[in-house]
Amino acid sequence: MLCQICGKREATFHFKEVINDKIRELHLCEECARKKGFLSESFFIPSFSLSSLIGGFTGEAEIPFSIASQVQCPHCGLTYEQIREKGKIGCSFCYQTFKDYLVPLLERIHGHTRHLGKAPRGLKMSEKEKEIHKLRKELEDAVKQEEYEKAAVLRDKIRKLEKEKSE
């Protein structure tokens, strides 16, 4: 097998990463492996990850170029096409600007689209936002406990609050 980077030398190093039951493999010759920094013992590079090398945007459906290239983030000025190419988001405002692209991407990576973890204590979350955050957690629990009636009530409450918030 030939090296996947130079395509010339025989691949003698085989890297494997298993994510969500999908095995990603990389076959490299010694020289390319060294150049890419793969040759140090895995022990010494615990952050080593094929996905970080390839970027989180792989496997994403193609987006019509014309649409993606028109909209610019008002804060950093990037287009989604630029972000996708580099595999890195421009700034915190990009999340809102490109949410139509990013939400499906987050869903595919994480299987979820809503944060349930901690929030900065000093965050000036409005009372409504705090309430919504709390309800979402309860909803998640209700679904897990298969209490679907309760979940439906919670879902309605959240919807109502979100609507009020955006008004």
């Binding site: 945007f57 988001i89 990013l102 991407l105 990576i109 944060h115 901690k118 900065p120 965050l123 936002e129």
Partner: peptide, 29 residues
């Protein structure tokens, strides 16, 4: 430690997506 630092830093955070990161593989927590 995160709590202590956060007292003096305004983190990029959204109540929907959590902590906002450069790579979507880290978004949330």
């Amino acid at each position: 430690v995160d709590d202590a630092l956060e007292e003096n830093i305004d983190y990029a955070f959204s109540s929907q997506w959590g902590y906002l990161t450069a790579c979507p593989t880290n978004t949330g927590t």
